[in-house]
Amino acid sequence: MSLHPPSDVEIGDIRAQLHELQVEHRDLDLVITHLMLNPPPDDLLVRRLKKRKLVLKDRILLLEQLLIPDIPA
């Protein structure tokens, strides 16, 4: 993490990345649900999609933390 607060441009970039990741995360959720409800499910594909979804969730949380300003103690 940098020691200075993000600039307006950096905040805009973070928000854009965050939005893209949230959309992909939501889309993966729909695909996983569809695959599981419509047999025969491809177990390997479902596992890979779930893993990707977790990676996206971690990245989303990291980007959200970047948008929260540091509050001095």
Rank of each mutant, 00 (worst) to 15 (best):
I68H: 06
R47W: 04
L62A: 13
V46E: 09
A73Q: 12
S7R: 01
K57R: 15
I32G: 09
L61T: 08
D13P: 00
I60M: 11
E24H: 03
V23N: 06
S7I: 02
I32W: 02
L28E: 07
V9K: 13
R48Y: 06
I71W: 03
L67G: 07
A73M: 10
H34V: 00
D70Q: 06
L54H: 13
L44R: 10
D27Q: 13
I68F: 03
D43L: 10
L44Y: 06
R52I: 05
H25M: 02
P41A: 08
Q65E: 15
I71N: 11
L49E: 13
K53W: 02
L35E: 14
H19V: 06
L18W: 03
L28M: 13
K53N: 13
R52D: 09
R15C: 04
H34Q: 13
Q17H: 05
L28Y: 13
D13T: 00
Q65W: 02
L45K: 15
R15N: 09
L67N: 10
L21S: 12
H34K: 12
V9H: 05
L66K: 11
T33Y: 04
L18E: 09
Q65F: 04
L3G: 08
P40S: 08
P5V: 05
V55G: 09
E10Q: 14
D29T: 11
D8A: 11
P41T: 08
P41H: 04
E10K: 07
A16M: 09
D27L: 07
D29A: 10
I60E: 10
D70W: 04
H4D: 11
D8R: 05
P72A: 09
V9M: 04
V55S: 11
P40V: 03
I14V: 15
S2K: 09
K50R: 13
M1C: 13
A73F: 08
A16T: 15
P6M: 00
E10A: 10
D29N: 07
P41N: 00
D13C: 00
S7T: 15
D29K: 09
L67R: 07
R26S: 10
E64K: 07
L28I: 07
I32H: 07
A73C: 03
D70S: 06
P41R: 04
I14K: 02
I68A: 08
E24T: 12
L30R: 14
I32R: 07
P69N: 02
L67C: 08
Q65K: 15
L54F: 06
P6W: 02
V9L: 12
D58L: 12
L35H: 14
L18P: 06
H25D: 04
L21V: 03
E24F: 01
H34N: 14
H34A: 14
V46P: 06
A16S: 14
L54G: 15
K53G: 01
Q17R: 10
D8S: 11
R48V: 08
D43C: 01
H4P: 00
L61G: 03
L49G: 09
L3P: 00
I11N: 07
R15F: 00
K50S: 10
I32F: 01
L67P: 14
I14S: 01
R59C: 03
L21T: 01
